[in-house]
Design a protein around this nucleic acid. Structure first.
Length: 577
RNA sequence: GUCCCCGUAGCUCAGUUGGAUAGAGCGGUGGUUUCCUAAACCGCAGGUCGCAAGUUCGAAUCUUGCCGGGGACACCA
């Protein structure tokens, strides 16, 4: 695909005095409608070379002057554009032989070879159940992680658990008052959440609770054995529960080191700040004043009561990740309400001279709609929707669909999980990160109970397309050949599929560099659209052996792209559904 | 009050980083299955791109101001 574009750029450059091929290449666009051609050259910026004629006149002159590259069938002008129509056979050959040669590796690149990046994502607070709001960081982070891996980077996935902080003082105090091991075992994290909610309520009535919580957190920070043991117990219980959900989602981490891991590294980080004269006291607290660097709000290191704060642990984590993993690029997939915090944190790291390139990959908030009113998802308000429940709901719906398939129970179960979870994940990854989203199960799992089917731009749509192609290839039953007669792939339907397959490598790179899995999601939707149109209009396995071989190669390539793309999004691609 | 994000079809969203008649899905409506999976495909209807100026040959896209929604703004994470 890019080779064709290069050929076109070379011809244009040869026809326009002073235009470098690289610049011509950059200016080439893809027409909005395939009927207008495969490559378009806009004639606005080269008017000087054509006597400052009007762009449409320039287009006419240029079209007459430009030498037709071998890969181009014909050249037409339309208004101010010179449009190039690629020879479908040449296009197919260029794209499909590259895809065939790369096999499962098609779409991957080596941009990040030898470089390590750390990506911090999901990072829930223990003692709170995983809600639907945690889905965003988890699946976006997982997608970015896989995309960067596809670009050749070594990616360390870190779940920076919220397992330290003053709220654990509350929790410990609450546990001492109302704790119940049997209930904890039965209800798990839900019980811890209830304790915290109750404690917060009581604190409003009786300020003494506040002091007791502080005392318990102090005990925890100073290594009190009882406090530490209870805390460890809570952490273990939470983690076991989280891991069940992560397993369902197919997400794993290289490190589960949360905030508590950095507790004994905080003093060293503060000492470094002090040695550079960056730390100071303000209103009883210990802070880094950033007002000279365009940030009014100071960065808090320690509270007035000397208790530590999460920012300090985050700073210690930056230093640790740079040193221990040798990573310069540090990616944080965290909701945008923490934007200021990361702005401050990164500034402090910079002032400290840390040799890192941190980036906050922010995403919009998820809120729940209730009685037509939007509410921010909040644990204490009881407006939390459990992630595990949503996943179960999705899986149940797919079970309904596959109920009358002639599969054994295990297979039904496997497919139901793959498809149901695929629907949930894709729903989140198909929108631009930064937009706020309303939680809407109906729309998330766009399911028609009458026809028993998912509809529209969903994960199941992509999986279905993949399954269809897999089915055809299964029926074909022979190995896919790479040396076919590409000229036979001549219809617009063939060309449409081939063109999309050819875009894949660039899409992977774009999605990774912009930390935007939705770029890949949208692309896969477009590809599936082309594939399904092709499927309806054309026959893959026919009487003509040569045509069949060519189409099998086309279909195998499209199937591979769907599979790789879904995998990069963290979604399974079953062969049947 | 200051700063940040968002505003595109009834609803949910794309829009190739400033280019051609602004595109999908859902919902509405009318069609497509002797054939590789109809969880699919095709047609029709539906738009002052929040509003107003400005920059430009050209603006949904860039600038400024306003309106509306959300968020952040020192001892929570």
């Amino acid at each position: 695909m890019n080779e064709l574009r290069k050929d076109v750029a070379a011809s244009i450059a040869a026809a326009v005095p002073g235009l470098e091929p690289a610049e011509a290449y950059r200016q080439i666009e893809t027409p909005p409608d395939p009927a207008m051609g495969d490559f378009a050259f806009p004639c606005f910026q080269v008017r000087a070379q054509f006597g400052n004629a009007a762009p449409p006149a320039v287009a006419t002159q240029l079209a007459a002057k430009v030498a037709k590259p071998a890969c181009i069938l014909r050249i037409e002008t339309k208004g101010p554009y010179v449009n190039f129509f690629a020879d479908p056979g040449v296009l197919a050959k260029s794209v499909l032989s590259a895809a065939f040669a790369a096999g499962e590796g098609y779409g991957r690149n080596e941009t990040g070879k030898g470089q390590t990046v750390v990506i911090d994502f999901s990072s829930p607070n223990i003692a709170k159940p995983l809600g639907i709001a945690h889905l965003r960081s988890t699946v976006i982070g997982n997608g970015i992680r896989r995309l960067w891996q596809a670009c050749g980077y070594t990616v360390i996935g870190v779940n920076h658990l919220g397992d330290w902080g003053t709220s654990f003082g509350k929790l410990l105090s609450a546990w001492k008052k109302w704790g119940n091991e049997a209930e904890l075992r039965a209800k798990g994290v839900e019980f811890l959440k209830d304790l915290l909610v109750r404690y917060t309520e009581e604190t409003k009535k009786d300020p003494a609770y506040q002091q007791e919580a502080r005392d318990w957190f102090r005990k925890l920070e100073t290594g009190d054995a009882e406090a530490k043991a209870i805390w460890q117990h809570f952490r273990d219980i939470s983690l076991a529960e989280f891991k069940r959900v992560y397993t369902l989602l197919g997400v794993d981490f290289d490190s589960w080191s949360g905030e508590s891991f950095y507790v004994d590294q905080m003093d060293a980080a503060i000492a470094q700040l002090e040695s550079k004269g960056l730390a100071s006291e303000s209103e009883g607290a210990y802070v880094v004043d950033l007002s000279a660097h365009g940030i009014k709000e100071p960065f808090l290191l320690r509270k007035a009561d000397d208790a530590s704060l999460y920012g300090t642990r985050d700073l210690a984590a930056i230093l640790y990740r740079r040193k221990h993993y040798g990573a310069k690029k540090l990616i944080y997939v965290v909701a945008q309400d923490q934007k200021l915090h990361f702005k401050q944190l990164f500034m402090v790291a910079k002032l400290l001279g840390a040799d890192v390139e941190p980036v906050h990959v922010e995403f919009g908030l998820m809120r729940i709609v209730r009685d037509g009113q939007r509410e921010k998802m909040a644990t204490r308000a009881g407006t939390i929707v459990l992630l595990a429940d949503v996943i179960q709901e999705a899986v149940d719906r797919v079970h309904e669909i596959v109920a009358d398939r002639e599969w054994d129970a295990a297979k039904k179960d496997r497919i139901a999980h793959a498809v149901g979870i695929g629907a949930v994940i894709f729903n989140d990854l198909s929108r631009t990160r930064t937009k706020d989203i309303d939680f809407n199960l109906q729309q998330m799992l766009d399911f028609d109970p009458e026809t028993k089917a998912f509809k529209g731009e969903t994960g199941p749509y992509l999986q279905y397309t993949h399954a269809r192609l897999s089915s055809a290839l299964r029926k074909y039953g022979k190995p896919v050949a790479g040396d076919v007669n590409f000229a036979l792939l001549a219809t617009d339907d063939d060309k449409g599929v081939a063109r999309q397959v050819g875009r894949f490598p660039q899409i992977v790179l774009d999605a990774a560099t912009r930390y935007e899995p939705s770029i890949l999601s949208r692309f896969l939707i477009d590809l599936a659209g082309e594939v399904n149109r092709f499927w309806k209009q054309q026959r893959i396995l026919g009487d003509d052996a040569a045509l069949t071989a060519a189409r099998v190669l086309l279909v195998a390539s499209a199937r591979q792209v769907l599979k790789s793309g879904l995998t990069m999004l963290g979604i399974e691609a079953p062969e049947e559904m």
